[in-house]
Design a protein around this nucleic acid. Structure first.
Length: 639
DNA sequence: AAATGGACG
DNA sequence: GTAACGTCCATTT
């Protein structure tokens, strides 16, 4: 971590290979951006100071310290890369709610998306308001105990918490009120900005003619289902509407440890084994510190090829010989490496035919299927696992939510992204954070601090028959709907859908990531050029959960045709709620559309069937809920 | 259940 | 020439 104050006002960047993976605000002001080549960066900013960042050790350790610190407040912490954490602070909020005197006057901490904090009455959103206090406390603890600064977002689900966390960039927090959900998702500049929509998915959506969030919101679910299958289609649509019923799943200790390196070229077996050995030396060390014993070993590589050089990695794995695994876990590091190199070469030869020329640009070695300690009874030894908290814990937690009182549960997640482009501003704190933040990682411990809690939320008003709400329906959203729609949704016809969970909850508080500011690796995409956030777009859009039988069914058709009425941004009246519109019968949609049609075509929206993509439809198998899933204990954190 | 690739962050 | 991780899912054997 860079903590030299002398560097505070100097343009600084973290370099990995020939790329500037991230940089401070001083550098950004000079035009340096993330993932810019070193050459380009120096051209923009000749005085740019670069620090090597290939070794992720420090980032990783700091990253785990952060996660552990958060867990000391509440165990429901889910990591997203090295610099983001989601936290479900429902319980904390509930406790505080119970302890908060009825008349107690309080306000939101930090910003409130799209409004002037002063205009918002905390008493109208007690759970979120308390969540904002919790987020502020967490950020403060992170700053005082780890020296890191970062952002946080407080909302009713993970998606929203993540989206809102970056509204005010350097080292600030933002809360999102349910009534502004439509504004925040609608303000996203494109589908790629939707968490969960990556390059591939964006391409497929584009092939369907969808480019904006609104396009996706309005696209008929059954048509979307033909491309992605029912479950994915529903998920995508929900995301576009700001609906996310996924739980905050505690991450615990990592499920695998790997080390890799990229290079211009390696074309001889000898060079390959040398590189593998180098990687194994550090990996074995890390594995040893971890204490668990790997049961599987994997070798991955990337070959050079002029065409299609994009990803494409190939891998081969094999069971880890027991004695080798023990060496790693116990002590014989060097021994283990000696045994592993030839094993890795066997895997290598399963992929590369050395009798022909080859050209590798990356090699990765990975230990997975980690088994926690063994032999000895639990006693001592070894690496303790400190937080012995396992799958059962998370299970309880989640079931807890479900039953948690009426519905409201606040989930907190902290998305945060480090990074952030953002103008300069308070360089003091920010920079400080930057330095430490830049490379956080590693784990290790952190003592507990326990604190509070709160109490519930409320979804107050109209009591809605929660027990009848179909899954996938966000109660908070539900309650905003017109009564007739509420009734409709509560009817048996909507009761199907998946068993999953969540129905619940409304208010969720999410605290996004408190993390760092720009981290080199992980989180790559984070940088929203932010444009969306600021827009004070129009008011809220009430959404209506999907689930209407007509669209739910996989092939219900009727709309089986390839072209559906799909208003583009231009022709869609701004006062019409897209969600509601999309739920109308197709014929009605067409009718309305023809009435509105007038604007210029604009936007290319070839709703053509996509070319070569395969479409998996129908057979959405539900592989049962993945209940068990061995969630390892987090013994990762030592005392 | 293990192996492998893909998508995402 | 996006870097260095890591997670979870789908499919195949």
């Amino acid at each position: 971590m860079i903590r030299n104050p002398a560097l505070r006002d100097v343009p600084l960047g973290i370099q990995q290979k020939y790329i500037v993976v991230t940089c401070n605000y001083v550098a950004r002001d000079q035009g340096v951006t993330k993932l810019m080549t070193v050459a380009a960066a120096k051209e923009k900013c000749p005085q740019l100071v670069l620090v090597k960042g290939e070794d992720l050790t420090h980032y990783r350790e700091m990253s785990y310290k952060l996660t552990e610190l958060l867990m000391s407040y509440c165990p429901l912490v889910e990591r997203l890369g090295f610099d983001e954490n989601f936290m479900d602070i429902t319980k904390m909020v509930e406790r505080r709610l119970a302890e908060t005197p009825e008349s107690h006057n309080f306000s939101f901490q930090g910003h409130v998306y799209n409004r002037l904090s002063a205009d918002v009455k905390a008493s109208d959103h007690p759970s979120l308001a308390l969540g904002s206090h919790i987020a502020a406390e967490l950020r403060d603890a992170i700053h005082s105990q780890l020296g890191l600064t970062g952002c946080a977002g407080v909302a009713t689900n993970k998606l929203l918490a993540k989206l809102v966390s970056g509204a005010f960039k350097p080292n600030q927090q933002t809360s999102l009120l349910p009534e502004d959900v439509g504004a925040i998702v609608g303000g996203l500049s494109g589908l790629r900005k939707v968490p969960g929509v990556g390059h591939q998915t964006a391409k497929r959506l584009q092939a369907l003619g969808l480019v904006s969030v609104k396009d996706l919101q309005l696209f008929p679910l059954n048509a979307l289902g033909k491309e992605f299958g029912g479950p994915s289609a529903r998920r995508l649509r929900n995301l576009s509407l700001g609906i996310d019923d996924s739980a905050v799943v505690p991450s615990g200790a990592p499920q695998s440890l790997s080390d890799e390196d990229s290079f211009r070229k390696i074309s001889t077996a000898k060079h390959v084994s040398e590189k593998i050995q180098e990687l194994l030396v550090s990996l074995v060390q890390r594995m040893h510190k971890d204490g668990r014993q790997p049961q599987t070993f994997r070798l991955t590589l990337r070959r050079y090829s002029a065409t299609n050089k994009w990803f494409s990695r190939e891998s081969r794995q094999c069971p880890m010989p027991n004695h080798v695994g023990q060496k790693v876990a116990s002590d014989g590091a060097d021994e283990a490496v000696v045994q592993l190199v030839p094993l890795a070469m066997k895997l290598f030869h399963r992929m590369v035919d050395c009798s022909a020329a080859f050209h590798l640009t990356l090699i990765n070695v990975c230990f997975s299927n980690l088994r926690t300690g063994g032999a000895a009874v639990g006693g001592k030894g070894s690496i303790t696992s400190f937080f012995t908290h396992s799958a059962s814990q998370s299970q309880d937690a989640s079931s807890d939510h479900q039953s948690s009182a009426r519905g409201v549960m606040t989930r907190c997640t902290p998305p945060q992204k480090a990074v952030s482009t953002e103008p300069p501003r308070r360089s003091g704190a920010e920079l400080h954070g930057w330095s430490r933040t830049q490379r956080p990682a590693v784990a290790v411990k952190k003592p507990p601090l326990q604190m509070e809690s709160g109490s519930t939320t409320s979804s107050h008003p109209k009591i809605t028959p929660m027990h009848r709400l179909p899954p996938d329906v966000d109660p908070e959203v539900f309650r905003l709907l017109p009564e007739e729609l509420q009734e409709e949704l509560s009817s048996p016809a909507y009761a199907n859908s998946r068993p999953g969970l969540s129905t619940s909850s409304p208010a969720v508080v999410c605290v996004p990531d408190i993390t760092t500011n720009g981290s080199p690796r992980s989180v790559r995409e984070s940088q929203n050029i932010d444009k969306g956030a600021e827009a004070k777009s129009r008011t809220a859009v009430t959404r209506r959960p999907e689930g209407s039988s007509a669209f739910l069914g996989e092939d219900v058709t009727e709309g089986g045709r390839t072209s559906f009425p799909r208003p583009s941004d231009g022709e869609f009246p701004g006062d019409v709620d897209p969600t509601v519109f999309s739920e109308l019968p197709l014929d009605v949609q067409r009718e309305l559309m023809s009435g509105w049609r007038q604007q210029k075509a604009a936007l290319k929206t070839p709703s053509s069937r996509k070319p070569g993509r395969r479409s998996s439809v129908g057979k959405d198998r539900k592989t049962a809920g993945k209940g068990a899933q061995a969630n390892n204990l987090l013994k990762y954190f030592k005392p």
